[in-house]
Every structure is written in structure tokens, then in C-alpha cells.
Amino acid sequence: MSTGQRLKFWFAERFAMIVALLVLFYLFLPVLYTFVFSFNNYKKSNISWNPEGSPTLEHWQNPCGPPGLCESLGTSIKVGGIATLVATVLGTMLAFALVRHRFKGRGAGNILVFIPMATPEIVLGASLLTLFVQGFGQYGLKLGFWTIVFAHIMFCISFVVVTVKARLQSLDPRLEEAAQDLYAGPGSTFWRVTFPLVLPGIVSAALLSFSLSFDDFIITNFVSGDTSTFPKFVYVSYLRGIPAQANVIGFSMFVIAVLLVVVGQVIGSRRRSPA
């Protein structure tokens, strides 16, 4: 290698990393803004920085101050919890059926699972709204908490199936064969070999479901009626001015999520290392 080539190589080696770090900075810039503006001593709207009296800890000391904010956060967490649980169970069952079994209509099943992900959220929201209002409305169903939950389960299922399917497909079938060679019955093969191996995929799917549900705005906005979730609270209060406490909560969720993921990774790697 000549010096010129080596220089070029050196540059090429670092070029991708430099661009990557710039892109990561770009991804984080709005989070940084959210954090900084949680200390803003704003007057009417928390859009421009008020040098007088800022930074202030006022909003961090009183995160539930604005009426409805923490209530909406609670709704988001409850919706996310229920939707995650149901979608993970239903989606995992679907994934097992689609990967492990050969049956009539398997192709159609795959398509039915795929299409909700290829449908814009606004169409999902609009169609659910028409069904809830014109179809189920006559049976006394009101838009609110449960309609949000039903909708979130629907769009989470597809993502669960895709995630668990990927894990199932990458599984080495010889492990299960080995278990059966060692006289494990179908039940214990499943619970002691297959399931533990698929579990990381199921956990990923559950985390993904929760974050999709927690951050959903478009579908929620269509099916929620008067009920508010955290993203809807922020969106609706945008016109009158978003309270800085929303920034406090948004940034705290970010920190909590990162901590949970880091702790999870550390535990995961510890568990793997002795073996």
C-alpha cells in the first residue's frame, strides 16, 4: 500500500464513523432541546427562551402541576401495559403457527399480518373511527380508554409477529431434535428448549409494542374521544402553550427507558458469560 492509498484508507476508515456521529447528534438534538426547555421560566408559551429567571427548577419540582398531564401519562402507561400484554400473547401464538405449521391459508395469514404495517396510521385510525362510531356505536360502545386499547393491540400484533418470527426462523432446529433424541416429550421440548430460546425475541417484541403504543398519536387521536394520552395531551396543549412539565415528563421517560435498557443489557450479558 502506498502512502496515498494509506491516507485514503485512513480517511475512509473514519469517514463513516464521523458522519455516523453527526447523524446521532442530529437524532439527539431535539431531545436536548426538550431537556433545556424544561428549565425555561416561560411566560405564555414554552417556545422561546426567557432569559429572566431561567434556568429554573420550578417545573421539575412540580411535574404534575398542569391539570390533566399526569392523568394522561397514567392512561398512556395503562394502555401500553394492556396492549403489550395482549398483543405479545396473540402475536407470539400467530408467529409459532406461521413458522412451525403448514396449513391451508398460511400465505393469506402472512399477508393479513403484513398489511396493517403497510397501511398508513391515518387510514387505520380513520377506519377504526368509522367502525366504532357507525358500527359498534349502536351497541353502546363509547370512544375512550378501551377503544384506544383495542386499536393499539391491533397495530402491535403485526410487529410482535414479525419480531418473534425472525427469532423463530433463526433457531437451529437441531437443538429441538437433540432434545427429542434425549427422550424429551413434545411438552418439555417446548417449555425447556424452544421457549427459552425464543424468549429474547418475545421480550424484544413486548418492549417494541410498549414503545409503539406509548408514543402513538395519530391512531389514538382518532379513537380516543375525550380520553387523553400523553402524546395527545402535548399535541392538544400545543395551541394554548405546552407546559414545561411535559418536557420534564418526556425527558424523564427517555432517561428511564435508557436506564432500563442498559440494566437489561448488563443482566443479559452477565447471564450469558458464565456459560
Partner: peptide
């Protein structure tokens, strides 16, 4: 792993809040 976390982490600050932050950045 760290970079992976960095790509996903901004998701957890509500996307509405981040879009409003862009309004501030681009104002």
C-alpha cells in the same frame, strides 16, 4: 450496542415533543 441504544432512545421522548423542538430549532 451503545450506538443501537442511541438510535432508539429518542423514541422515548414523545415524537410530538421532538417535533415541537424542531419548531424551536428551525424558528
Amino acid at each position: 450496542g451503545v450506538m443501537m441504544i442511541c438510535v432508539i432512545a429518542p423514541f422515548f421522548t414523545s415524537f410530538i415533543l421532538r417535533t415541537i423542538a424542531w419548531r424551536q430549532i428551525l424558528s
